[in-house]
Design a protein around this nucleic acid. Sequence first.
RNA 1: GCCGCGUUCGUCUAACGGUUAGGACGUAGCCCUCUCAAGGCUGUAAUACGGGUUCGAUUCCCGUACGCGGUACCA
Length: 482
Amino acid sequence: MSTEVRVRYAPSPTGFLHIGGLRTALYNYLFARHHDGKFVLRVEDTDRSRYVEGAVEDFMHMLNWAGIEVDEGPVVGGPFGPYYQSERLDLYRQHVDRLLEEGKAYRCFCTAERLDQMRKFQEKSKLPPKYDRTCLRLSAEEARKKLEAGEPHTVRMRVPDDATVGFSDLIRGEVAFSSFNIDDQVLLKSDGYPTYHLANVVDDHYMQISHVIRGEEWVSSTPKHVLLYRYFGWEVPQFAHLPLLLNPDRSKMSKRQGDVEARAYPPKGYLREALVNFIALLGWNPGDEREIFTMEELIREFSIDRIHKAGAVFNLEKLNWLNTMHIRRKTDDEIYELLSGELERSGLSSFPREYVLRVIALMKERINFVGEIVTFSGYFFQDPDSYDPDGVRKRWKPETKSHLVRLTDELDKVPSFTHDALEAVFRDCAEALSIKASDLIHPVRLAVSGVTLGPGLFEMLEVLGREAVVRRLRTAIARVSA
RNA sequence: GCCGCGUUCGUCUAACGGUUAGGACGUAGCCCUCUCAAGGCUGUAAUACGGGUUCGAUUCCCGUACGCGGUACCA
């Protein structure tokens, strides 16, 4: 086998891409890219009853959104396909037959009801829950009869009686299980489909996967996989079991406590850069104090030995902060592109791109989500229809009216309506009136925007332009002082 | 129940036997300032518990507690 790093993300299409799944995919991808290896996407669609329509499309779409490029997989293809397990049934079948012939697996004719009773009994007797091997004790003759009679059956792997099965985990170190606690796992279901355990091992082998990087929930079934590799005489890949993502109450991340589906995040205004940066840091850190990373930087820095062992709580507040940090790193043009849909929906797409770009430049540093440019800066697109009452109370004094009348006249005739010229007008006017500039600035902000917060006043006025500013001031003077 | 894994500020984490246990988010205060942000400064807050080992334990070992995962013809 080559020494090339080959990893895979192998989701099951039983639901849409989960944040935890996205992180697993990301870690695999970062590891692959860091080592100039390949990232494979394999669809583990062996459970026909739980298949969710559209799930595969969702995985691919969200991976693509996140900037995780698939080197081999369903759409792009590759030398080790097909990449849908449902299209590899013959391969699994052949391998089950081989195990059967070699006595490393056996047919099981037990019914679901029987197995149920058995488990209840085991629990009551405080025994480890595992198949009691009733069918292993069937004579060759009995088994053949049942088979010929067409009795539905599964195929189970035969676990050695008294052995320790261990493996070395890149994150957890040596992990060992006594075979006494390893179940004779079903490898082939009665419907002819393989279970995860069989399909996964067979595919990882033939797809030449060098490192199996997956969630912690697989730790306890890894001994079964190790056994299968041995049965087939195959080299065992390196394992790395990732810590889980947790809800705020430290239970396994799930619905009810926030959004677990990756596709919920883009519409909320989260940047791919922020989400990727955030989940990368959930369980991994670069070893120094940097926090903001691009995908390229993550690829450069990523290493499995800096992955944590303990689960990590998915905490929105830090994600939000990262979102604002990444927004600030974007150019105005990039933000415009991200905003186009929002502008459309808000009926603002008729405004010239140049104008929107200037609004973006002013708002970019004061928002947490791209969409807030639209929600927080309505006054750039429309005259205010009301004035914040608290602001009026605080900033609009009895003498304000006459001051603004005078200022408005000055603004109406200032030769160039630019930041510096406007500031000079304000300063001169304040001086002439023997008041502070802020006594003009605050009421003007209120008159022009209707609110008390926003970008610096002079740059705001410059963007708004003389006509709108003068019009709004005159309207406000009449309305607020009335 | 059985098996496995884990445990540093509220959260994400650094420290791989010797640090005043560091950083970030959040939060509180201050500075800056035309507002709001941003930024700067300061504060807040942690090694689960009990035994060892050691001159010295966050760090190594054992136990307990707690949490989590698995315990399917799901993945």
